[in-house]
């Protein structure tokens, strides 16, 4: 393929205070690809995602989204980018003071000059897509966990973005609902030719939807490759993750003693 990558991250390093959270991360996603980011708790998945979304600016390395360096872009360029990105946050992040319908309509109201009727029809169409037809007048607090996720997805796709980000689609959902969400993600890619980045813990869901998988471990990318390649990998850490084995705790005595005796710093 000679197409330009929609996401191009090079040598991204992230520190929080003195802690080095992401190490030399390279991350590339091609148009129409479904990429799953996997990794244990605390491995830096959310941190990477926040950089892809431009919520955090890289201090070292570069993040290019749809060809634009998000840290160096003018606010007009960033705004243009944002219209082409949709995000469904882990907890949904629906605006609690608005109805479901108003939530979904908000991006249209902010970014387009469509008249009220068109806005209403378009947002209801998207609610139909996620099987929430008829729920537009409820408040977010009246929805179940799975419905919140689907409503957040409807809001994320209402502008027909080129790029869709999905943080933990299946966390906290029952297996049936989470399988339905997986189905939905596949349909979205096929129907709208989106590139989709999914962060997930769920192996089953990852294998079902992913074209390619990136495995993060303690801030390092262990590998990026097609599902089959990741499954076949002989990397011990990847196999630990795939087989739910507890990781071996390597005890570095000096480091251990240093941690215990170290004076308070911050």
């Amino acid at each position: 393929m000679d197409a330009e990558p929609v996401i191009d991250v090079q040598r991204l390093n992230v520190w929080f205070g003195k802690r080095h959270i992401l190490h030399d991360v390279d991350f590339r996603v091609m148009p129409g690809e479904i990429r799953v980011i996997m990794g244990g708790s605390g491995s830096g998945k959310s941190t990477l995602l926040r950089h892809l979304l431009g919520l955090l600016k890289p201090r070292s390395g570069s993040v290019r989204i749809l060809g634009t360096d998000i840290a160096a872009a003018s606010s007009a360029e960033v705004l243009r980018l944002r219209r082409q990105m949709g995000v469904s946050f882990q907890g949904g992040a629906l605006f609690t003071s608005m109805t479901v319908g108003e939530n979904v309509a908000l991006p249209l109201r902010e970014h387009t000059d469509l008249d009220e009727n068109t806005v209403r029809i378009m947002s209801r169409l998207k609610l139909e897509v996620v099987n929430l037809g008829g729920f537009q007048d409820l408040m977010p607090s009246q929805l179940s966990g799975g419905m919140v996720k689907r409503a957040a997805l409807a809001r994320a796709i209402v502008m027909d973005p080129k790029l869709l980000f999905f943080d933990e689609p299946s966390a906290g959902l029952d297996p049936v609902v989470s399988a339905e969400l997986d189905e939905l993600i596949l349909q979205l890619r096929d129907a709208m030719r989106m590139s989709i980045i999914v962060v997930t813990h769920e192996l089953e869901s990852a294998f079902k939807i992913a074209d390619t998988i990136t495995v993060l471990d303690r801030g390092h990318i262990l590998m990026t490759g097609p599902v089959a390649a990741v499954r076949a990998s002989d990397n011990e850490r990847i196999q630990d993750l795939l087989n739910r084995r507890p990781r071996k705790v390597e005890v570095d005595t000096d480091e251990y003693l240093r941690r215990l005796t170290e004076a308070e710093v911050d």
Partner: peptide, 17 residues
């Protein structure tokens, strides 16, 4: 504060608001 905690502020950013 509660919008911040529930990532609604992040959601505003990524919507372009």
């Amino acid at each position: 504060g509660s919008m911040n905690v529930s990532q609604e502020v992040d959601a505003l950013y990524v919507i372009g608001i």
